[in-house]
Amino acid sequence: MIQNPSLRAKRSVTKQIHREPVSNAEIHENVVDQVYQQSVPNLINSLIRRSLLEKTDGLFFLQQIVMEYVTERFIL
């Protein structure tokens, strides 16, 4: 069976998809690849600018429609 390399790479980036708001520290804990660890602040800001990630009371969460897409794309 041939596995899509980009899918394999996506799975190695994070441990899980959080459905509840998470702190910046929790995001850092769940980034597996050390290369991405250093990029987390820039990636968070990029997602916020694109309105894909929201921040309330110091916690981050995905828009509901984005969460549905991510769940379908990466989990199912």
Score class of each variant (00 low, 15 high):
V40R: 00
V13I: 15
P5V: 11
T71M: 01
V13Y: 03
L43A: 08
A9M: 11
L52H: 02
Q64I: 05
L76N: 08
Q34G: 06
P41H: 06
A25R: 11
I27M: 05
Q38W: 14
E29T: 10
S51Y: 00
L76S: 08
R8P: 01
A25N: 10
V70C: 00
S12I: 15
D57I: 01
I27Y: 05
N45L: 14
F61E: 10
S51E: 05
P5K: 13
Q34W: 06
E54G: 09
I44F: 03
I65E: 15
T71D: 04
H28D: 07
L59V: 03
Q37V: 04
S6P: 00
H18R: 09
R49V: 08
Q34N: 08
H28C: 06
Y36E: 04
H28F: 09
L53H: 03
M1T: 03
V32T: 10
L53M: 06
M1Q: 10
S6R: 12
A9R: 12
I27R: 05
F61H: 15
N30C: 08
P21W: 07
K10M: 13
S39Q: 12
D33A: 06
N30D: 13
L53Q: 03
S6M: 14
T56V: 12
V66K: 13
S46R: 13
T14H: 04
N30W: 02
Q64K: 12
L52V: 00
L59R: 13
M67N: 02
V35A: 07
N45E: 15
V31I: 15
R11I: 07
H28A: 06
Q37S: 05
K55M: 09
R11F: 10
Q63C: 04
E20N: 14
V66P: 02
V35Y: 09
A25P: 01
E20K: 14
T71A: 01
V35W: 07
L43I: 15
G58F: 11
R11L: 14
N42G: 08
L59N: 08
N45G: 10
L76F: 04
K55F: 01
Y36F: 14
E54S: 13
P21K: 15
E72P: 00
I17T: 01
V22I: 15
I17G: 00
N4M: 14
I48H: 02
S39W: 03
E54T: 10
I44E: 04
F74Q: 05
Q3R: 15
P41C: 04
L76I: 04
V32G: 00
R73W: 07
F61L: 10
I75G: 01
